[in-house]
């Protein structure tokens, strides 16, 4: 442990613990998932930084979306994201979740992910190498330090809009809203 950080640890232990204990749930869409096994196993060893994969979204606090998102998988992504306990962070991989990437004109791949769930950071590249993943994680540390990794707060505050976007894409949704949605606000749009 870095000695300079001891004051930080004493000041806000919860935040610091979040920084150094990322339990990750991966959404295995697309090609990005190929970059995950080398980064968590012997070659790059993400466990040095406390990053380990977990099996269920309930135990996780970091959500990695690794690659393009088709309309069908977006449903699963939204459900997984809503199941994670707060605070939670989302990082999207590669150029496809940013603007569609090479699937910019595909008939069933959504073009930008942050219209449907909040994304704290993007790692650009097609695909990003494991080094880029680590740099992304260090950037996320900085964001958490500055309290700017507030995707889950935005999701709670603007849930009406997120839900409206999701419903515009899917029509009627299969599951009830996570937070209460007031009908009046929806009618204004």
């Amino acid at each position: 442990m870095d000695r300079n950080q001891i004051s930080k640890w004493l000041k806000n232990p919860g935040k610091m613990a979040h920084k150094y204990s990322f339990h990750v749930v991966y959404f295995c869409t697309g090609c990005g998932i190929i970059e995950i096994p080398p980064s968590i196993t012997t070659r790059w060893d993400a466990e040095r930084f406390g990053i380990i994969p977990v099996a269920t979204p309930r135990q996780a606090n970091l959500f990695l979306i690794t690659g393009y998102v088709s309309t069908k998988t977006l449903k699963a992504i939204i459900r997984t994201y809503e199941q994670m306990p707060e605070p939670k962070y989302t990082v999207a991989f590669g150029s496809c979740p940013i603007n569609g990437g090479m699937y910019y004109d595909s008939y069933n791949t959504i073009t930008s992910l942050d219209k449907y769930i909040p994304v704290d950071g993007y790692i650009a590249g097609c695909m990003p190498r494991p080094e880029a993943v680590f740099i992304g994680v260090t950037h996320l540390w900085k964001l958490i330090d500055m309290d700017k990794a507030d995707g889950y707060k935005r999701y709670r505050e603007d849930y009406v809009h997120y839900r409206a976007n999701q419903e515009q894409l899917y029509g009627q949704m299969d599951w009830p809203p996570l937070f209460p949605v007031e009908k009046k606000e929806q009618a204004n749009l």
């Binding site: 008939y107 809009h161 976007n165 894409l169």
Partner: peptide, 11 residues
């Protein structure tokens, strides 16, 4: 794509 995904506004 422009008519479906593109029509969805950002937050």
């Amino acid at each position: 794509v422009n008519n479906t995904f593109g029509k969805i506004p950002s937050i």
